[in-house]
C-alpha cells in the first residue's frame, strides 16, 4: 500500500480540486452567487447531459489526436525518416498560429454546426503539439541506451517496446496531459459552433445575462479539465512506479 500511494498522490491535488469545482457547479451553490434577475441555474440533469456530451466529444478527439500524434512521432523518430524532422517545428509553429476558435470558425461553413467543426479544430490544434511532445520524449532517450540494446541483439521493434517507450514514458504522459487539456478546452470553444458542450451555458449565459448558468458551465468545464489531468497524472505515477519496481 505504501508503495502505491506516492504514485497516486501525484494526481491527487488536481483530482480533489476538480471534485471541489464540480461540487461548486451544483445549482444550489451557483444560485447563491448569480442572484441577478436573469439568473436561472441549470438543473443537475441538464448539466450532467452537457458534461457527458463534452466528455464524449473531447474523448473522441483525444483518442484520434493521441493515436495520430504519437504514431507520427514514432515514425518521425525512426532513423529512416530523419529528413522530415526539420520541417516538424515549422509546421508546429504554423499550426499554433491558428487559434482553435479560428479553426472552429473556418470549419463552420464547410462542416456545418455542431460536433464536426469542433472535432476538426481538436485535430488541427492537437496533433502537432502531441507530435512534437512525442518526438521530444523519444529524443530524451540516451543514445547509449539504444546502442546497448542494439548490441545485445534486440530488433528495432523490441528496442522501441522495451527501451525507448519505457524510458520516454514520463515525457509521453506529459504530452498526453497537454493533449487532454487542449481537448477539454477546444471542446468548450466548440459551443460557439453550436456543439452542445459545457461551453454552451457559458456562451448562452454571456448572451442573455444568465450569470448562474455561466458560472456553472465555467466551473464544470474547469472541473472536467482538472479531473482528467489528475487521472492522467495518477496513471503516469503508476507507470513510473511500476518501472521502478521492475528495475529494483
Amino acid at each position: 500500500m505504501s508503495r502505491i500511494s506516492p504514485a497516486l498522490a501525484a494526481g491527487l491535488g488536481p483530482f480533489l480540486l476538480g471534485l471541489a469545482l464540480a461540487a461548486a457547479s451544483h445549482p444550489t451553490i451557483a444560485a447563491l452567487v448569480g442572484s441577478g434577475a436573469a439568473s436561472r441555474p441549470l438543473p443537475v440533469s441538464r448539466l450532467a447531459e452537457l458534461a457527458l456530451h463534452h466528455l464524449t466529444l473531447a474523448a473522441a478527439g483525444l483518442a484520434v489526436v493521441s493515436i495520430l500524434g504519437v504514431g507520427l512521432g514514432l515514425f518521425a523518430t525512426r532513423t529512416r525518416f530523419a529528413s522530415f524532422r526539420g520541417s516538424i517545428d515549422t509546421v508546429v509553429a504554423f499550426a499554433q498560429a491558428v487559434p482553435p476558435v479560428v479553426v472552429v470558425a473556418l470549419a463552420l461553413p464547410v462542416l456545418g454546426f455542431g460536433g464536426p467543426p469542433t472535432l476538426l479544430a481538436l485535430l488541427a490544434y492537437g496533433i502537432m503539439p502531441t507530435l512534437r511532445g512525442t518526438v521530444g520524449a523519444l529524443d530524451s532517450v540516451s543514445n547509449e541506451a539504444r546502442e546497448s540494446a542494439q548490441a545485445i541483439g534486440l530488433t528495432p521493434g523490441q528496442i522501441l517496446a522495451y527501451v525507448e517507450l519505457p524510458l520516454a514514458a514520463k515525457g509521453l504522459v506529459e504530452t498526453l496531459r497537454t493533449a487532454l487539456i487542449l481537448a477539454v478546452s477546444v471542446t468548450a470553444v466548440g459551443a460557439l459552433a453550436g456543439a452542445s458542450t459545457l461551453g454552451t451555458p457559458i456562451v448562452a449565459g454571456l448572451q442573455n445575462q444568465n450569470i448562474a448558468a455561466m458560472l456553472q458551465g465555467a466551473l464544470a468545464t474547469a472541473a472536467l479539465a482538472f479531473l482528467g489531468d489528475g487521472l492522467l497524472l495518477a496513471i503516469g505515477g503508476w507507470v513510473q512506479g511500476n518501472r521502478q519496481r521492475t528495475a529494483d
Binding site: G34, G36, G199, I202, G205, I211, L215, A222
Partner: peptide, 24 residues
C-alpha cells in the same frame, strides 16, 4: 501551471460571472 489547465472559455465566463457578482 494550474491556471493553464482551466479552459479559456471557462476562465472568461467565470471572470464575467465573478465580476458581475462583485459589482452587484
Amino acid at each position: 501551471s494550474g491556471l493553464q489547465i482551466v479552459p479559456a472559455v471557462a476562465l472568461l465566463g467565470g471572470l464575467v460571472a465573478a465580476l458581475s457578482t462583485l459589482l452587484a
